[in-house]
Amino acid sequence: MAISWKSRLKERFEKNDSWPKIVMIYLFLLLCCFITIYPISFIFTVSLRPGNQLFSTSLKLIPDNATFKNYTDAFTKYPMAKWMLNSMFVSSLTAVFAVIISVNAGYAFSRYRFWGRKFGMTLLLVTQMFPAPMLLLPVYLMLVRFKLTNNYLGLILWYVSTAVPFNIWLMKGYFDTIPRSLEESAFIDGASILRAYWSIILPLAKPAIALCALFAFMGAWSEFIVARILITSKSMLTLPVGLIALQGSFSTEWGIYSAAALVTAIPVTVLFIALSRYLVGGLTLGSVKG
């Protein structure tokens, strides 16, 4: 009885693995998980600390006298809600534009053979080589000239242009996995190019489109290097810029900052993890097939 129980358990592992090896693997993975989780759980700990204990040297996960006061303070003492709304606006528009642009371009790169196709794909890769401050500088000078600083249009355009190259590669790779015969049979049934694209290909590409939207949204939701240059008006600050400003005075506001950071991070983190099962296929397919 015991033997069959053991052998059945054993079937769930690689067949040649010995028990000590399995234990070692789990211990190693456990250590890695601890390393990935701890810095984040530490934010949580600090966010629960009451004001007089911020600089405690205790390493407890839930501090003594844990309180949610920092969470309410974030919204009452600081314009957190306003920052969130601003960021929500900018990030959603970024995601919408980035999806429209990269899905269409990815489809063209996947389905059509045209002059400059390979060159275009390579150029997209080259855009990844620009250091962010490199293009930020001329864009900033351009926006100053057109008097578009402190205007979300400039910021959104910037985010879209940074999100699009990677997303085009991603979409192209995904479209490559959808057989052409699907459209061909639609064409034979008399469908137009747009109709086949809209009602056959796009529904199939939903996971990749979701991933695109998420990447674009996340990019804009967590960007501050550019936002703090382009948006300086107090009422227009986006969430990361606001939070970093809060953190600048962290000797006093560290607990509030941690609470705010968690509130900011949780929605995108959950979304990201929910979509992460598509990551494995999507990323590599997108990057491998020329």
């Binding site: 990935t36 934010i43 990361p240 970093i244 900052y257 900011t264 995108v268 993890i273």
Partner: peptide, 17 residues
């Protein structure tokens, strides 16, 4: 899922943590 956490959390928040 636990191992991809550092990628899933917004970068600046992770860096400040």
């Amino acid at each position: 899922v636990l191992l991809i956490l550092p990628w899933a959390v917004p970068q600046y928040i992770a860096a400040i943590a």
